[in-house]
Computed example of a mutant assay.
Amino acid sequence: MNPTNKTNTDPNVIVSRPLPPDEISPKSVVLRVLAVKNVFYRNWKLLVILVGIGGIAGFIYDMMHKPRIVYTGSIMFNLGGGSSSSSFGGDLGQLASAFGLSSGAPDANIFVGDNFLIYATSRPVLEKTLMKTDTINGKDTLLVNYYIRHSGIRDKEWEDNDSLRAFYFKKAKTPDQYTKMEQIVMAGICGRIEGEMAIKQPERKSSFMQLECFMEDEKLTATFLNTHLKTIEEDYQKKQTKKTREMYEMLEQRADSLAKIITGTENQLAQYMDQNQQVVVAQAKLKESKLTRNSTFLSGLYYQALQSADNMRLSLIRETPLFTVIEPVTYPLFREVIKTQGLQVGIALTLVLSIVIIFVRETYRSIMKE
């Protein structure tokens, strides 16, 4: 039999089968490595030159920009101690019934869950903090002016604007009193502070909150943390007890009005009794009895209003949320030197750019050969 006519069943015949398209042979891997080696050998000078240019540019950038010194501080606090005013229970329920209000009043608490975290870093609260006056280095200083001078905003964001660099607030103002320049300044400051502070929950199962801040001045960082927490406390308590305070003010106004009416009625009664001491006419006695009855009735209403106002005052105290500082700001604050990464960034960018240029160059060369 001709050996060329052997079937595939012959064990002495070795059959070479093509590899599947999804598999790579060791030979192809070696060839690719050699090809990459050749490409690098042909273009290593270009690669070194471009990476060197990027490194030099990054080094010059680092030399022109000084390292940034940042002081980081934090204050841990707990929010609690106030009873909810949404249910109108106890004295509030009785008082609401007295005024004809329904016991199912809506919930007055607008700070639920993560809403408090957003509220604490919102611009309205930041503006209230910046417009507070604090004693810094023995002087009463508006916090926003101290921030302008020591936060570094004039040397970075306002470097090319002489009007902003020389600006300062003459007195504390509310947002509706700002001039156009003051609105621009406050917008820039609040935008910068939003990136310099954070409020978080250290532990998921804990009710503690932690307010953190990192700025370029140690005194500014500590003062801002303490002042901002005080602002949050005041504003939060004011909003949480708004409904109770409105009812308390209404009761005080009612008591004041009743006091004026009682005073007028008693003066009329006293004047009438002085003028008619010897009169025994029944009609005169009837008018005296009417004035006496009105005075007694008004006195009862007045004392009832005073008692309701006292109960409302106690309810206001119970509902006021309590901020308890767990860990205050302590000196010295953590000091960190943040250097620019110009050298590393320059080398990384030029390395990627070099690879792209070499790839385009080798592709063009391959096309021209074909």
Rank of each mutant, 00 (worst) to 15 (best):
H150V: 12
I199T: 01
M197S: 03
A198I: 10
A96M: 11
D140Y: 05
R149G: 00
W158L: 14
I148L: 15
C213P: 08
K128E: 14
K219H: 09
C213T: 09
T133V: 12
E212Q: 00
N145A: 01
T129W: 05
T121N: 13
R149N: 06
T174E: 08
E127I: 12
E212D: 00
F111D: 10
D155R: 00
L130S: 07
S102G: 15
V125C: 06
N161I: 13
L211C: 13
L126Q: 11
A187T: 05
E218A: 11
L220F: 03
A96I: 03
Y168F: 14
I153E: 11
K128M: 14
L101W: 05
E159N: 13
S151R: 07
E182S: 02
S151K: 02
Q183L: 05
I118K: 14
G100T: 09
C190T: 15
D140H: 08
F208S: 09
R123S: 14
Y168Q: 13
N137G: 01
L117V: 06
S97F: 02
N226Y: 04
L117S: 02
R192V: 03
D176K: 13
L117P: 07
A187H: 01
M209L: 14
T129S: 12
S206T: 04
M186G: 04
K156L: 14
G188L: 00
A172P: 11
P202N: 01
R204H: 11
Q183W: 03
L126D: 01
K173D: 08
Q210V: 11
F214T: 06
E127R: 05
S206F: 05
T174I: 05
G100F: 00
E218N: 01
F169E: 07
M131F: 15
C190R: 14
T141Y: 10
S122M: 00
N145G: 05
F167L: 04
E218P: 03
I136M: 08
K128Q: 12
K128S: 13
F224G: 09
A105F: 02
G152W: 13
T121Q: 08
T141C: 11
F116M: 04
P124W: 09
F167T: 07
F116C: 01
N226M: 10
G195T: 03
M209S: 03
D134N: 14
L142P: 02
S103M: 15
T129C: 07
E203Q: 10
Q177A: 12
R204S: 15
T174F: 05
G104I: 08
G113T: 05
T135Q: 03
I136H: 10
E159F: 15
V144R: 07
I199K: 02
Y119N: 00
D155E: 06
K139T: 03
K132M: 13
E127H: 08
D155G: 00
A172H: 03
M131K: 11
S207R: 14
Y168V: 09
D217W: 08
K170Y: 09
G152R: 10
G100L: 06
P202K: 02
L220V: 07
M186V: 08
L130N: 01
L164R: 09
G104R: 09
V112G: 04
R192L: 13
T221A: 11
E127Q: 13
K171S: 08
L130E: 06
A222Q: 01
A105L: 03
K173L: 14
N226W: 04
K128D: 14
R149H: 06
E196M: 15
Y168E: 14
Q201T: 02
N115P: 10
I193E: 04
M181R: 08
R165H: 06
E203V: 13
V125G: 01
N145D: 05
T223L: 06
P202C: 04
